[in-house]
Simulated scan of single mutants.
Amino acid sequence: MPNLRRNPRPLRAREDVNRFPLSPAQHQALAALQQQLRRWNSRCNLTRLVEGDDYWVAQVQDSLWPLTRLDPPLGGPLRGVDVGTGGGIPGLVLAIALPESRWVLVDSLQHKCVAVQAMAGELGLKARVEVVCTRVEVLGRDAHYRGRFDVAVARAVAAAPVVAEYLAPLLDRRGVALLYRGRWSAADHQALQQAARKLGCGIRTRERCLLPGNRGQRHVLVLSPETACPAPYPRPVGVPTRHPLATAPLPQPPT
């Protein structure tokens, strides 16, 4: 992956992010996305992470590093869905990085969907990116989308068991869900395992990296279907967040 930082410096040993290979044209497209985010931020405040390392590391590299850890790697004419896309990240970044892929970007806020649709058009991605303004609980029960995706992703959306309930119903039986997370504990892992079992999924792997520039630790949890997602899921709008399928126990105080 070309160096995405404006002021490059060697990565320290503890900064172990893997770099996804990008062509000059893809790098230019990511720079164009940054310009589009600046433009739309002045209208509707999509994200504060648009300058320097805030964009190139905390947005772009954080979106792409999980792709370097997947086995087999993502590629070819896959169909992906980005749930809770917000300002279009990671969905637009992934669409740029995977040029044969097609994406559905989902958000429940109309002004964000309008902005993302416009940005996709300006970036020449209109033919490969569909923007849907709805709640994901509704999308997951729509036959046009349920069970249709090779990869489903969510970044900074909700607690992991909640996100699992959003993503699992959307997966094809051979698909994978990528749950982007920050910190991750044994209790978090146990809660996600409990939720995944109810959804007919298993945790394929957990990957970890440290982003450059003191941007912190990141994890990605990869879920894959073991059976068809049971018909009751996703539950009606709001229920997954109010009543998660599992919750991580609170740390116990020292005795």
Rank of each mutant, 00 (worst) to 15 (best):
P2C: 02
N3R: 09
P10C: 00
F20H: 15
S23N: 09
P24I: 04
Q28K: 12
A31S: 12
Q34T: 04
Q36P: 11
Q36A: 14
L37E: 00
R39D: 13
N41T: 04
S42K: 14
C44P: 00
N45G: 01
N45F: 00
E51N: 12
A58N: 13
V60G: 03
S63G: 08
P66N: 11
D71I: 04
P73Y: 10
G75D: 01
G75F: 04
G76S: 08
P77H: 03
R79D: 11
G80C: 08
G84N: 12
G88A: 09
I89D: 01
P90C: 02
G91K: 14
I96D: 06
A97V: 05
E100Q: 14
R102P: 01
V106A: 05
C113T: 10
A115K: 03
A120K: 09
A127D: 15
V131A: 02
V132A: 02
T134L: 14
R135A: 03
V136F: 08
E137R: 06
R146H: 08
F149L: 05
D150G: 09
V151S: 10
A152R: 03
V153T: 15
A154C: 05
A159G: 12
A159E: 15
E165D: 11
E165T: 14
E165H: 07
L167P: 04
L167K: 00
A168I: 06
R173F: 02
G175P: 05
V176E: 09
V176H: 09
R181C: 10
R183N: 13
A186M: 03
D188C: 07
A191P: 02
L192Y: 03
Q194A: 15
A195F: 04
A196D: 14
K198A: 10
L199R: 10
G200T: 08
I203P: 00
R204M: 11
T205S: 13
R206K: 05
L210R: 15
V222E: 04
L223V: 04
L223S: 12
E226R: 14
P230E: 12
P230Q: 02
Y233I: 05
V237P: 01
G238R: 10
V239C: 02
V239D: 11
V239N: 12
T241H: 10
P244L: 04
A248T: 07
P251T: 10
P251D: 13
